[in-house]
């Protein structure tokens, strides 16, 4: 094992705890982005002109100090770094957990009783597969709205119109709803876990409060993302 040749400190900086901290920090960067993104999406309700000019305005942040779209590209690099760090640590910890639990995680016991453990939540045991669903969604989502490679319901230069066109198709809305719910569950456990990993869980009471905070934020983010597509799909908003 090559790892034995590292100094204790170097080894500790690659430990499960350090990996988990990397996951927490990269996750929190993405959550911050998600909050802003969700808030921005709600501008959809200000109408086509204002929504589209808001999105155009994002390209002019710090212009002329940065070139047109410069701020957005900085953001993209940061987010890509966060996704890579997050996925890297997730995969490394997942592999370790499988080895440590005789390859079967929580299903390593023969007993069919108490399969779901004593208190662990749905959100906590869907974290890993949920993360993969989210990753697949992000690729699809970028091809859809950012790159415009996919344009269900008709091609258009207006992102407002693209949203209306897309979410008038039931299966596009369904795909988004599934992905947003997956994000909601991911954040429900992930946020709590990130805070605890970074040392914020200092008492039994704090544990409860951090969990409440994580639940509220997860509901706010998922709820906020759900409103525009559902308004279009169900109430025909914007058409």
């Amino acid at each position: 094992m090559a790892i034995k040749t590292l100094s204790p400190r170097a080894q500790a900086s690659r430990s499960t705890v350090a990996l988990k901290a990397l996951m927490a920090v990269s996750g929190l960067i993405m959550v911050t982005y998600l909050l802003i993104h969700m808030y921005g999406n709600l501008k959809f309700f200000q109408g086509q002109e204002r929504f589209d000019s808001y999105l155009e305005g994002l390209r002019n942040i710090l212009y002329p100090y940065l070139p047109h779209g410069g701020a957005l590209w900085i953001l993209r690099v940061v987010l890509l770094g966060a996704v890579i760090a997050h996925a890297y640590s997730a995969v490394a910890l997942w592999r370790r957990a499988r080895t440590a639990s005789a390859r079967q995680g929580a299903k390593r016991y023969h007993s069919n009783q108490n399969r779901r453990g004593v208190q662990r939540s749905y959100a906590s045991f869907t974290l890993r597969w949920g993360g993969i669903i989210i990753l697949a969604f992000i690729v699809f989502h970028i091809l859809h709205f950012t790159a415009g490679v996919l344009h269900p319901g008709g091609d258009t230069d207006s992102k407002y119109q693209a949203m209306v066109n897309s979410f008038s198709i039931w299966y596009v809305t369904l795909a988004y709803v599934v992905a947003i719910l997956a994000v909601g569950f991911h954040l429900r456990h992930g946020l709590w876990s990130a805070f605890a990993t970074l040392g914020a869980n200092t008492s039994t009471k704090r544990r409860r409060n951090l969990n409440i905070f994580a639940t509220v934020l997860a509901v706010v983010i998922a709820g906020g993302f759900l409103v525009p597509p559902l308004s279009i799909a169900i109430f025909g908003y914007g058409s």
Binding site: V17, L19, K20, R96, V118, Q119, S124, F125, H189, S193
Partner: peptide
């Protein structure tokens, strides 16, 4: 020792 990492599940 090969133990896994903690994901704050609480079991």
């Amino acid at each position: 020792e090969g133990f896994g990492g903690c994901t704050q599940i609480g079991e």
